[in-house]
Computed example of a mutant assay.
Amino acid sequence: MPGMHKSDLHSYLRAARESLVWKLDGLAEYDVRRPLTPTGTNLLGLVKHLAGVELGYFGDCFDRPHGESLPWIEKAAEDNADMWATPDESREQIVALYRRAWAHADATIEELSLDAAGHVAWWPADRNPVTLHRILVHVLSETNRHAGHADIVRELIDGAVGRRSGDVLPSDEASWWEEYRGRLERAARQAQGA
């Protein structure tokens, strides 16, 4: 049964990864980089961040060197340097790094048991040690959280929604969505007493 649990978690992680990368498809370089929230959330930055997450949690925490250079996570790096791409960091480089991180993480997940012991150096001592199971759940949760951010950012850019191409939605007509959004706005105002 533990093998089945690991397989299920791993399958959901793979799907979340693919969903996040799909959000970049068909967009101009500016659109994958531009900040669309007051805190600067952008699509390529989310991918860059999650590459470091996977390399750290499935590499460093289980003493499995990954060999990647990640200057944006060094102590001397500026705050949030992992959450955006510099002009010198291409989309192709960042996506390739994320895919290498997947391969490294996948090897860790496949080779270790769910109860394999690890250590997260950047977590408080009372939350260590950890197991592969805990880290797999943690990274799956973080990846899905950021995939949700990407959903909203992509919708703001060009209206594209869903986890993948061909997702079934109630309608693909702009007029349907305008009416729906208007109904929600009216309900919100009515609930407030406006």
Rank of each mutant, 00 (worst) to 15 (best):
M1Q: 09
M1S: 12
P2K: 14
P2W: 14
P2D: 12
P2R: 13
K6D: 10
S11E: 14
L13D: 07
A16S: 14
R17F: 01
L20R: 04
L20W: 05
K23V: 04
K23Y: 00
K23Q: 02
L27T: 01
L27Y: 02
E29W: 07
Y30Q: 15
V32P: 02
V32A: 00
V32M: 02
R34I: 15
L36M: 08
T39E: 09
T39W: 13
L43K: 03
L44V: 01
G45M: 03
G45I: 03
G45Y: 05
V47T: 07
K48P: 05
A51P: 01
A51F: 02
V53F: 10
V53Y: 07
V53D: 12
V53T: 12
L55C: 09
L55E: 05
Y57I: 10
F58R: 09
G59M: 01
C61H: 10
C61W: 04
C61G: 01
D63P: 06
R64D: 07
G67H: 05
G67T: 07
G67R: 04
P71D: 02
P71S: 06
W72E: 13
K75I: 07
A76M: 09
A77I: 12
E78D: 10
E78S: 08
D79R: 14
A81P: 09
D82I: 05
D82N: 08
A85G: 03
P87C: 13
E89K: 04
E89T: 03
R91I: 00
I94F: 05
V95I: 05
A96T: 00
L97T: 01
Y98E: 04
R99K: 14
W102P: 02
A103G: 07
A103N: 10
A103I: 03
A105H: 05
T108P: 02
T108F: 01
I109W: 08
S113E: 13
L114Q: 03
D115A: 09
D115R: 11
G118N: 04
W123Q: 10
A125H: 05
D126S: 09
P129K: 08
P129L: 04
T131Y: 07
T131Q: 14
L132C: 05
R134W: 14
I135Q: 08
I135N: 05
T143K: 04
N144P: 15
H146Q: 02
H146F: 06
A147L: 11
A147G: 03
G148I: 00
G148R: 05
A150G: 09
D151H: 04
I152N: 01
I152R: 02
R154E: 06
E155M: 07
I157K: 00
A160N: 08
R164T: 13
R164A: 11
V168G: 10
L169H: 12
S171V: 08
S171A: 06
A174T: 13
A174N: 12
S175Q: 14
Y180S: 11
R181T: 09
R181Q: 14
R186H: 13
A188R: 15
R189V: 14
G193I: 05
A194Y: 11
